[in-house]
Computed example of a mutant assay.
Amino acid sequence: MVTTPPPNPARPPQPSPKTLLRRELLAARRALSPESLRASARALARSALALPELAGAGTVAAYVSVGSEPGTRDLLDALRAAGKRVLLPVLLPDNDLDWAAYEGPGSLAETAHAGKMPLLEPSGPRLGPGAVTGADTVLLPGLAVDGRGMRLGRGGGSYDRVLARLERAGAHPALVVLLYDEEVVARVPEEPHDHPVQAVATPSGVVRFTDSA
Rank of each mutant, 00 (worst) to 15 (best):
residue 89 P to N: 04
residue 163 L to T: 09
residue 112 A to R: 14
residue 198 Q to T: 00
residue 44 L to S: 03
residue 176 V to K: 08
residue 52 P to L: 15
residue 109 A to K: 13
residue 53 E to C: 03
residue 79 L to Q: 03
residue 96 D to P: 01
residue 163 L to Y: 08
residue 131 A to G: 01
residue 18 K to Y: 10
residue 145 V to W: 07
residue 199 A to L: 06
residue 84 K to L: 11
residue 178 L to F: 10
residue 46 R to E: 15
residue 144 A to Q: 09
residue 105 P to W: 14
residue 183 E to C: 15
residue 69 E to L: 04
residue 175 L to P: 00
residue 147 G to S: 13
residue 77 D to Q: 14
residue 86 V to S: 07
residue 47 S to M: 11
residue 106 G to V: 08
residue 124 G to P: 05
residue 49 L to G: 06
residue 24 E to D: 11
residue 29 R to W: 11
residue 49 L to D: 05
residue 13 P to W: 04
residue 125 P to W: 05
residue 96 D to S: 15
residue 64 V to M: 05
residue 9 P to D: 14
residue 79 L to Y: 05
residue 6 P to A: 15
residue 16 S to K: 13
residue 77 D to H: 09
residue 84 K to I: 09
residue 78 A to P: 10
residue 134 G to N: 07
residue 31 A to Y: 07
residue 40 S to I: 01
residue 15 P to Y: 00
residue 23 R to D: 13
residue 211 D to W: 03
residue 106 G to P: 11
residue 84 K to P: 09
residue 170 G to E: 00
residue 110 E to C: 02
residue 2 V to T: 11
residue 82 A to W: 06
residue 73 R to Q: 13
residue 150 M to D: 12
residue 142 G to R: 04
residue 98 D to N: 14
residue 177 V to Y: 11
residue 44 L to H: 03
residue 96 D to Q: 13
residue 42 R to A: 14
residue 31 A to W: 05
residue 179 L to Q: 01
residue 201 A to K: 01
residue 176 V to S: 06
residue 34 P to G: 12
residue 169 A to K: 05
residue 126 R to Q: 12
residue 52 P to N: 10
residue 123 S to G: 07
residue 16 S to Y: 12
residue 185 V to L: 15
residue 170 G to V: 00
residue 128 G to Q: 10
residue 57 A to Q: 02
residue 22 R to V: 08
residue 148 R to F: 09
residue 106 G to E: 15
residue 97 L to P: 00
residue 169 A to E: 08
residue 137 T to E: 07
residue 119 L to W: 13
residue 85 R to S: 06
residue 148 R to C: 06
residue 168 R to E: 12
residue 169 A to Y: 13
residue 82 A to E: 15
residue 116 K to E: 07
residue 56 G to S: 11
residue 62 A to H: 02
residue 194 D to I: 08
residue 146 D to N: 07
residue 115 G to L: 00
residue 70 P to C: 00
residue 111 T to Y: 00
residue 121 E to A: 11
residue 196 P to S: 07
residue 1 M to S: 09
residue 177 V to H: 10
residue 38 R to K: 09
residue 134 G to S: 13
residue 63 Y to L: 02
residue 203 P to K: 00
residue 38 R to W: 10
